[in-house]
Design a protein around this nucleic acid. Sequence first.
DNA 1: TCCTAAATAAGAATTTTTATTATTTATGCT
DNA 2: AGCATAAATAATAAAAATTCTTATTTAGGA
Lengths: 137, 137
Amino acid sequence: MKNYELLLREHNLKVTPQRIGILSVLGDMGHVSIEELFTIIRKDFYSISIATLYKNISFMMEVNLLKEVKVPNGKSKYEILKDEHSHMICKKCEKLEDVKVCLDSIVKNISEKSGYMFDDNSLVLSGICPTCQKGTV
Amino acid sequence: MKNYELLLREHNLKVTPQRIGILSVLGDMGHVSIEELFTIIRKDFYSISIATLYKNISFMMEVNLLKEVKVPNGKSKYEILKDEHSHMICKKCEKLEDVKVCLDSIVKNISEKSGYMFDDNSLVLSGICPTCQKGTV
DNA sequence: TCCTAAATAAGAATTTTTATTATTTATGCT
DNA sequence: AGCATAAATAATAAAAATTCTTATTTAGGA
């Protein structure tokens, strides 16, 4: 359980129970879509407005507290910003996981070939996770 | 100018003027969002329905004729399926470009570490293109 | 040329996202 | 601690994006 209050203050966002709730869900689950977030957070904040979620997610992305993960064939999910990493998605169970990958040399190479200056990247690998490989389902 | 009629037949889709129109736009522009496609294609098919675009894009993805590119901070774009490649997006002019990258060793490495079996990946590098680096704008 | 299943256009219906506004709340200041 | 004020929230409307429905048209095979 992290100190989300501090995290908000560090990013110059006012501390509200709703915001702490949002961050708690994200912290617990790792990656959450707006839809999922709305369902889950209503257990603690029954009358929370979906607009509050959209607005706060968008605020938190602006101040680099959250990052959007565009999931192939799925809805976007959001995660608390952490060290650079990539993602793996299982096509069967739809689980999304972080994975540490060093893309430095690849990025450097493409930058030199293309002349682009890159400051961000997103890599998502799609396949079947170990668990789903076992089941015949 | 490619033979889109053949391309459709090869994927067991009926050949209609609208479908050839969609593929022509995609072939010419490389990557197009639904919105852009609708604007452009109406020059040739004034009364085309947006539902026709959605439905056909979706059909063509099902039969692996098109692929969706999820653009960071932007709307999805669609491209005619071709050899595996990655993408570069310019944050200033929003241009999206293909780039050939070999991710084999990285994918293999992650697969071994994680136990996942991967059959697809999407890498998008974000930055500033050479052209936009020049202008002070 | 004709038949039939599929594709299209048009528009309705849903879903997703954003905007508006009255009320409530967090936070800095006394 | 209590107040003032700017910002956040809830509720709802509005807008945008996507999907569904249905009558009509069309592609492709017989």
